[in-house]
């Protein structure tokens, strides 16, 4: 029989509400609270041997430390798998459930499953590493969620092959898995199109990436004193492409000096970009990176200063994660240089 560990917060363990959210990790023998429903769903295939409880504030404020303490408490019970929550839409609880699952997967090398609502902030933090079952927003969804969580956990513990998220009912983990299909791509896409025309449901093989919401930066109060930088994803690089920026799916960016440059000269630059016809930009690079006009505005005092380097990469068939990292690095460097505004030109 499989030895199962369960993780609960102070509320579901019956210890208390917000006034008890600071309590540190503690362990009990056997099941508690929602653990009873898990025990029933295990139906003789496993037994809850230990329940770890931690206050939501304690965990969310000390994720690393709390994870280690939970592992220490669990180790003597030698569990074969762990089930956490479900956390529903409770944010700190979701972060704790995901954190505990990740810790036992990585450190105890046992499978772990949790459940949460799609808007729980724990989802995006842990979905890549942890199997998370979708639940309703509140504990009303307990009876539906628990059998699904237990079923997936048992299959993981017995090392069964786990199918796609849509078949198995867990949140996609951001993995690409190669599969052999007996239909060609053309057959599959036409069949999807027919389903769409008939108003039937279909599953795209290329899910749309999740774009996060970016909070708008505050306005520039005094543009006449502001340092402005030029950044482009149009692939403009000095002749010879010194940073070896790729023509597609770029993983690198370059920064190129503008000291003493009044206007970009065509003989100094080339374009590394296979996503647009670059003939006009090669004729006059200012059509992409408007250094000539920025220098005029600088002379006239309409802006404080043009930043002495422009940044360039290639925006075609890019991976959102890679571009996010690149963007963060560029932003960090620009901020450190005292830049307060950026004009990003895109093709």
């Amino acid at each position: 029989m499989l030895r199962v560990a369960h993780y609960l917060n102070q509320f579901f363990a019956g210890i208390g509400g917000e006034e008890k959210a600071e309590i540190g990790p503690q362990v009990r023998d056997g099941f508690l609270g929602p653990g009873r429903a898990i025990q029933n769903a295990l139906a003789g295939r496993g037994e809850i041997v230990a329940t770890v409880i931690c206050g939501d504030n304690y965990f969310a404020e000390n994720i690393e430390k709390a994870s280690e303490e939970v592992i220490r408490l669990l180790a003597p019970f030698k569990p074969d798998l762990l089930i956490a929550g479900p956390a529903f839409a409770a944010g700190r609880y979701g972060i704790a459930c995901g954190g505990v699952c990740r810790a036992v997967i990585n450190q105890m090398r046992i499978p772990a499953v949790t459940g949460m609502h799609e808007e729980n902030p724990g989802l995006d933090l842990y979905r890549n590493e942890v199997y998370i079952i979708p639940t309703e927003a509140s504990a009303r969804g307990m009876n539906v969620a628990i059998p699904k969580m237990v079923n997936l956990a048992l299959r993981l513990a017995t090392k069964e092959k786990i199918g796609r998220p849509s078949e198995e009912g867990y949140f996609p983990r951001g993995l690409l898995v190669n599969e052999i299909s007996d239909q060609t791509g053309a057959e599959r896409v036409v069949s999807m199109l027919l389903k769409k025309l008939r108003g039937q449901s279909f599953e795209s093989e290329v899910p749309r990436p999740n774009y996060d919401h970016v909070t708008p930066a505050p306005r520039i109060d005094d543009i006449r004193r502001a340092k402005i930088a030029l950044v482009t994803d149009g692939g403009l690089v000095p002749k010879g492409n010194p940073d070896e920026i790729e023509m597609r799916t770029a993983t690198r960016f370059g920064k190129y000096g503008l000291k003493g440059v009044d206007s970009l000269r065509p003989e100094d630059y080339e374009v590394r970009h296979m996503g647009y016809d670059s003939v006009f930009v090669r004729q006059d690079p200012n059509r992409l990176v408007p250094v000539d006009v920025m220098r005029d505005l600088e002379r006239e005092g309409a802006i404080g200063k043009l930043h002495e380097e422009f940044y360039s990469t290639t925006g075609v068939a890019n991976i959102v994660e890679t571009m996010r990292r690149m963007g963060e690095k560029i932003a960090e460097e620009l901020k450190a240089s005292g830049v307060s505004g950026v004009i990003l030109t895109s093709t």
Binding site: Y211, D212, H213, V214, P216, A217, G234, Y276, D277, S278, V279, F280, V281, Q283, D284, N286, R287, L288, V289, P290, V293, V320, L344, T345, S346, T347
Partner: peptide, 19 residues
């Protein structure tokens, strides 16, 4: 994607120009 202040350029092949 994710840009909060968007300005329309001229054309994809020369966003800040017109040959």
């Amino acid at each position: 994607v994710g840009s909060n202040r968007i300005v329309r350029g001229n054309k994809i092949v020369n966003p800040l120009g017109n040959a």
